[in-house]
Computed example of a mutant assay.
Amino acid sequence: MTDKTNIETGAERYPERATIRDVAARAGVSIGTASKALNDNGRLKQETRDKVIAAAQELGFRPNAMAQSLHRTKSMTVGILTTDSVGRFTFPIFEALEERLAEHGIAVFMCNATEDPAREKQHIDQLLGKRIDGLVVTARRMDRRPAIAVPGKTMPVIYVFSQTDDPDALCLVPDDYGGAVLGVEHLIAGGRKRIAHITGPERFEAVTLRQNGFADALSKAGLPQIGGFYRNGQWSEQSGREAVAELFDGEQTHPDALFCGNDQIARGATDALRERGLRVPQDVAVVGFDNWDVMALAARPPLTSVDMNLRALGRAAGERLIAMIAGERLKGVERLPCSLVVRQSSDPGNSKKTTEENQS
């Protein structure tokens, strides 16, 4: 074996890593033969192959990952580009995605663009420079964004909890319409007939889809949409409190249930109802959306909520990306089913149960 010097860093000393040249010398073969043996290719006697592998193990040799990727045209890495600096939605997706890819030996680089186009371009250039095998794009909200420009369109790109207008792109998002149907049908099954919908700004596609699901569930049950029972606002607890004031002031008909666009709105609404002396769920049942534990479990009472199943979304993204890296061509918008987690805000007899019936 060739003599080695040491690399010093502060008070510690680290030996240099063994190279393919060292392995070849230890095994008594050429560098080319050692490379073939370690990459399991070429015509070699099994005895020679075993000798090289044994030498590599003795020396603690670790192949250069980039050199191997150049040989097999795969880097075994993918990039994740997000605009969600808070991570409320993307972290569960990222965790499940990373777990799924790790099963195939694929590592992940994550970059946060914070909705800055210049920073996003810089991250994309850096990821492409690392020869990633694929790219996953996520966001804080699911509304459409410009498509990622990939040279030659040869590298797989998947949009998860994010969408683009590119007809050749693959987008994976929760089924907002189906989730709304689940929530409203649950309230109807509990005997509620005057259901109001409190939600976020109309400019979001999710708001439109959930409103459509709300309306269709009422129509299917033969229940009317009562005038004034649809309220747009912000994604905030304050918006929930303000909507309750508007819905319950005066002599007009009052709701016996609230279907809320997210858990923050629902928590604000339950606080406002309690301050008015109304019992939840006996007087007014409440269902939220997102199943965000920070909000849903801290509410009084704990919130029934539609779960977007973000980890399932991440696993599905991993599976689709693996298939695309292997050569499959996938495109279109896939809307994955939501589920309903039932707690005391709509059902005093159940501390927690989950139903996935009537998923779309």
Rank of each mutant, 00 (worst) to 15 (best):
P255T: 02
D293K: 12
V286Y: 02
R210P: 01
Q344N: 12
D271I: 14
V306H: 00
N291P: 03
E242V: 07
E275H: 09
A285V: 02
A296D: 00
R241L: 12
K220N: 08
L336C: 05
P281N: 06
S345E: 00
V287E: 00
R241E: 15
L278Y: 11
G318I: 06
K220A: 14
H254S: 10
D249Y: 08
G240C: 06
F229C: 06
E319T: 14
R210K: 06
A266Q: 01
R210L: 03
P302I: 08
A312I: 12
R329C: 12
E334I: 15
D307E: 09
Y230E: 12
P301A: 08
M295I: 06
M308Y: 11
D216Q: 09
A312E: 15
K220Q: 11
L297Q: 10
G314I: 02
A316H: 14
M295V: 08
N232H: 13
A215Q: 13
R210D: 00
S346T: 01
P301G: 07
F248S: 02
Q252E: 11
G240P: 04
F229H: 10
Q252A: 15
V294W: 05
D307S: 04
Q225L: 14
A215H: 12
N291V: 03
L273C: 09
F229P: 05
R267M: 15
G288E: 00
I226S: 04
V287A: 03
D347C: 04
E242W: 04
R210Y: 03
Q238T: 15
A312W: 09
A299H: 00
R315T: 14
C260F: 01
G349H: 10
A257F: 04
R210T: 03
A257H: 03
E251T: 11
E275D: 14
I322T: 13
A245F: 10
E334S: 15
R274W: 11
P302C: 07
N309S: 13
V287C: 02
A323L: 10
L313Q: 09
A243K: 01
R279L: 14
L273Y: 08
D293G: 06
A298M: 13
